[in-house]
Simulated assay, not measured.
Amino acid sequence: MAVTIKEVASAAGVSVSTVSRAFTAPDQVQPQTLQRILDAAAKLGYAPNPAARSLRGGRTGSLGLIIPDINNPFFPPIFKAMQARARRQGYTILAADTDEREFDELETIATVSKRVDGLVLWASMLGEDRLRELAAEIPLVLVNRHVEGIPELRISLTAGISQAAEHLKAYGHTRCVFVNGSRPELERGKSIRESFEAHELSLAELGPYEPRFETGVHAATLVASGDATAVIAHNDLVALGVLHQLAKLDVKVPGAVSVIGIDDTLLAATSTPSLTTIRISADEVATQAADLLIDTIAGRGGGRVVEIGSRLIPRASTGPAPR
Results as ranks from 00 to 15, higher is better:
Ile260Glu: 03
Gln35Trp: 07
Glu102Cys: 08
Ile109Tyr: 04
Ile313Phe: 00
Ala95Asp: 06
Thr4Pro: 00
Ala40Val: 03
Val120Gln: 01
Ala86Val: 05
His146Phe: 10
Glu152Thr: 15
Arg36Cys: 04
Glu105Val: 08
Ser124Ala: 13
Val223His: 01
Glu133His: 10
Ser62Pro: 00
Asn49Cys: 08
Gln89Asn: 13
Ala42Tyr: 03
Ile37Val: 15
Thr318Leu: 06
Ala136Lys: 04
Asp27Gly: 08
Leu142Trp: 03
Arg101Ala: 12
Asp129Gln: 14
Arg85Cys: 11
Ala286Trp: 02
Gly90Gln: 11
Ala11Ser: 14
Arg175His: 15
Ser281Leu: 09
His218Glu: 11
Gly303Thr: 08
Gly261Glu: 06
Phe196Arg: 02
Ser258Trp: 01
Phe75Pro: 00
Ala256Lys: 10
Glu200Ile: 02
Leu142Met: 12
Arg85Trp: 02
Ala228His: 05
Pro73Cys: 09
Phe23Asp: 01
Val3Asp: 00
Ala239Ile: 07
Val257Thr: 04
Met1Asp: 13
Arg300Gln: 15
Met125Pro: 07
Ala42Trp: 06
Leu222Cys: 05
Arg154Leu: 14
Gly45Gln: 09
Phe79Val: 15
Glu200Phe: 09
Ile308Trp: 09
Asn71Ser: 15
Pro77Thr: 09
Glu7His: 09
Thr158Tyr: 00
Ser310Cys: 13
Leu249Gln: 14
Gly45Arg: 09
Thr229His: 05
Ala224Phe: 02
Val120Leu: 12
Gln245Met: 13
Arg132Pro: 01
Leu249Met: 14
Thr215Met: 07
His199Thr: 05
Leu275Asp: 01
Thr221Ser: 14
Ala228Cys: 13
Gly58Phe: 09
Ser202Cys: 08
Gly61Phe: 11
His173Ser: 06
Thr92Glu: 10
Asp39Ser: 11
Arg279Met: 07
Ser162Glu: 12
Arg175Pro: 01
Ala198Phe: 00
Val3Leu: 04
Thr33Ala: 12
Ala170Met: 07
Glu128Ser: 14
Ala11Gln: 13
Val242Phe: 04
Ala96Tyr: 02
Leu293Gly: 02
Pro139Val: 06
Pro322Arg: 05
Val305Thr: 15
Phe74Met: 06
Val285Leu: 15
Ser17Phe: 01
Val223Gly: 01
Gln89Tyr: 07
Pro151Met: 08
Ile278Phe: 01
Thr221His: 10
Arg154Val: 07
Ala22Tyr: 02
Ala41Gln: 03
Phe74Ser: 01
Arg132Gly: 03
Arg88Ile: 11
Arg132Val: 06
Gly207Cys: 12
Ser10Lys: 11
Arg85Thr: 14
Ala290Met: 09
Phe213Glu: 07
Leu203Gln: 04
